[in-house]
Computed example of a mutant assay.
Amino acid sequence: MAIFSQELEDLLRQTFPNAEIAVEGSDGQHMSAMVIDESFRGLNRVQQQRAVYAALKGKMDGPDGDLHALALTTKAPE
């Protein structure tokens, strides 16, 4: 089953309601997302990305996940 950009953005928005979020991709399995959120301040890149993966609520878990690949850019606002 595929996931689409609006669904991915909606999932991210639940966890990061004030973030700047941009999601791209239209095949439902390979997407990119940029998430800029104040909650990332003081966290290293791995911690930031783990927070985003947690927000996806299992959509990328294992070979049966809805989303196969996600190119992810995360940072705190400047």
Score class of each variant (00 low, 15 high):
residue 35 V to P: 00
residue 33 A to Q: 04
residue 62 G to K: 05
residue 39 S to G: 04
residue 1 M to K: 14
residue 12 L to Q: 04
residue 10 D to A: 07
residue 1 M to W: 11
residue 30 H to D: 12
residue 9 E to W: 01
residue 57 K to I: 06
residue 61 D to Q: 15
residue 3 I to P: 08
residue 66 D to K: 06
residue 72 L to R: 06
residue 27 D to S: 07
residue 77 P to S: 13
residue 78 E to V: 05
residue 41 R to E: 13
residue 64 D to C: 14
residue 34 M to Y: 05
residue 61 D to I: 09
residue 73 T to Y: 02
residue 44 N to Y: 04
residue 7 E to L: 12
residue 74 T to P: 01
residue 5 S to E: 09
residue 76 A to L: 05
residue 17 P to I: 08
residue 21 I to K: 00
residue 10 D to L: 03
residue 47 Q to P: 14
residue 70 L to R: 00
residue 32 S to F: 07
residue 22 A to E: 15
residue 47 Q to S: 13
residue 30 H to T: 05
residue 75 K to R: 15
residue 39 S to K: 04
residue 70 L to Y: 01
residue 74 T to I: 09
residue 37 D to S: 10
residue 22 A to V: 11
residue 12 L to C: 09
residue 49 Q to C: 12
residue 33 A to K: 00
residue 5 S to G: 06
residue 69 A to E: 11
residue 42 G to P: 07
residue 29 Q to M: 08
residue 70 L to H: 01
residue 22 A to T: 10
residue 9 E to G: 04
residue 43 L to Q: 14
residue 34 M to N: 09
residue 54 A to E: 13
residue 9 E to K: 04
residue 9 E to P: 03
residue 63 P to W: 11
residue 31 M to G: 01
residue 21 I to P: 01
residue 31 M to Y: 02
residue 47 Q to M: 15
residue 50 R to W: 10
residue 44 N to S: 04
residue 55 A to H: 02
residue 12 L to S: 03
residue 42 G to R: 13
residue 45 R to M: 12
residue 24 E to S: 08
residue 40 F to R: 00
residue 43 L to M: 15
residue 73 T to R: 05
residue 31 M to F: 03
residue 1 M to S: 13
residue 3 I to F: 09
residue 24 E to V: 05
residue 42 G to W: 11
residue 38 E to V: 09
residue 67 L to F: 03
residue 74 T to V: 02
residue 75 K to D: 15
residue 36 I to E: 02
residue 43 L to D: 08
residue 59 K to R: 05
residue 65 G to V: 04
residue 26 S to I: 06
residue 45 R to V: 14
residue 76 A to N: 07
residue 69 A to S: 14
residue 5 S to V: 12
residue 39 S to W: 02
residue 18 N to D: 15
residue 52 V to I: 08
residue 40 F to M: 06
residue 18 N to K: 09
residue 73 T to W: 01
residue 8 L to M: 12
residue 21 I to N: 00
residue 41 R to I: 08
residue 23 V to W: 03
residue 60 M to P: 04
residue 34 M to C: 13
residue 33 A to H: 00
residue 22 A to K: 15
residue 53 Y to W: 11
residue 41 R to W: 07
residue 75 K to W: 14
residue 4 F to W: 10
residue 34 M to A: 15
residue 74 T to D: 07
residue 68 H to A: 04
residue 48 Q to K: 02
residue 23 V to N: 03
residue 76 A to M: 04
residue 46 V to Q: 15
residue 31 M to Q: 11
residue 32 S to M: 12
residue 66 D to Y: 06
residue 75 K to C: 14
residue 65 G to L: 10
residue 52 V to Q: 00
residue 77 P to M: 12
residue 23 V to E: 06
residue 76 A to Q: 06
residue 40 F to A: 02
residue 3 I to C: 11
residue 32 S to N: 09
residue 43 L to T: 06
residue 9 E to Y: 02
residue 24 E to L: 08
residue 74 T to Q: 00
residue 59 K to Q: 08
residue 47 Q to R: 13
residue 14 Q to R: 14
residue 34 M to V: 14
residue 77 P to V: 14
residue 2 A to I: 10
residue 50 R to L: 09
residue 39 S to N: 02
residue 22 A to Y: 09
residue 7 E to A: 13
residue 69 A to V: 07
residue 26 S to D: 12
residue 48 Q to H: 02
residue 75 K to P: 08
residue 38 E to S: 14
residue 68 H to M: 03
residue 43 L to K: 11
residue 33 A to T: 00
residue 58 G to L: 04
residue 56 L to I: 12
